[in-house]
């Protein structure tokens, strides 16, 4: 762990409000992006991202400083996402349309945005549709495959970091990643 991380952890353990703000500012976008891709729903993703920081702050005394702070943060995020997926599955919550609606709305507003260069409408819609198709495909991957695709191909984490986050051996991560990519490709072939 770096000296800067060590110092940040020390301040967090002393309940330093400024340290907490620094932690959130540094990691919020990546944590949110991870929860969004794992859950496929903006409201759920925001809720879980908030819980990640609350849990990290609450349990900072149990952090053993063997891994990087960001690795630990990701581990907490992945575990909370898995719990939420299970919870949503139990509730038979199939409402994953919110992201799609907001993507389409974002694409439409991008087309209509005054001032900037006017994008070709067919291209802008294509982008939103690609996003929609991919997100739906990711959301239907099984949980273990989803984690690996999100961490490696979207969040761009190294295999070593993924092993530390998931507690899986190197060979298993690579083999499952291969299967996850194939499964994803199968789901999107007819669209992309």
């Amino acid at each position: 762990m770096s000296t800067a991380d060590r110092e940040l952890v020390r301040r967090l353990r002393n309940r330093d409000e400024q340290a907490f703000r620094e932690l959130v500012a540094e990691h919020r976008d990546r944590v949110y992006n991870l929860t969004l891709r794992m859950l496929g729903n903006r409201a759920e993703a925001e809720d879980v991202a908030q819980e990640v920081f609350i849990q990290v702050f609450k349990t900072i005394d149990t952090f053993r400083e063997e891994a990087k702070l960001s690795t630990w943060l990701y581990r907490v995020a992945v575990n909370l996402c898995k719990n939420r997926i299970k919870y949503l599955a139990r509730r038979h919550d199939r409402d994953r349309d919110q992201l799609d609606d907001s993507n389409e709305a974002a694409a439409s507003s991008a087309i209509a945005a005054p001032g900037g260069p006017t994008p070709r409408p067919d291209r802008a819609l294509e982008g939103a549709q690609v996003e929609k198709v991919l997100q739906e495909a990711i959301s239907t991957l099984d949980e273990e495959h989803r984690v690996l695709v999100v961490l490696r191909d979207i969040e761009d984490l190294s295999i070593e970091e993924i092993c530390a986050i998931t507690n899986l051996p190197d060979g298993t991560v690579k083999s499952r990643l291969h299967r996850a990519r194939l499964a994803l490709r199968k789901k999107v072939t007819k669209y992309l």
Partner: peptide, 21 residues
């Protein structure tokens, strides 16, 4: 297939966290 899946995933936008988070 694997390469195509990777290329498709690269097209996903990074979504910033909401301001109020």
């Amino acid at each position: 297939e694997i390469r195509a899946a990777q290329a498709a995933l690269k097209r996903l936008n990074k979504t910033p966290a909401p301001e109020e988070l």
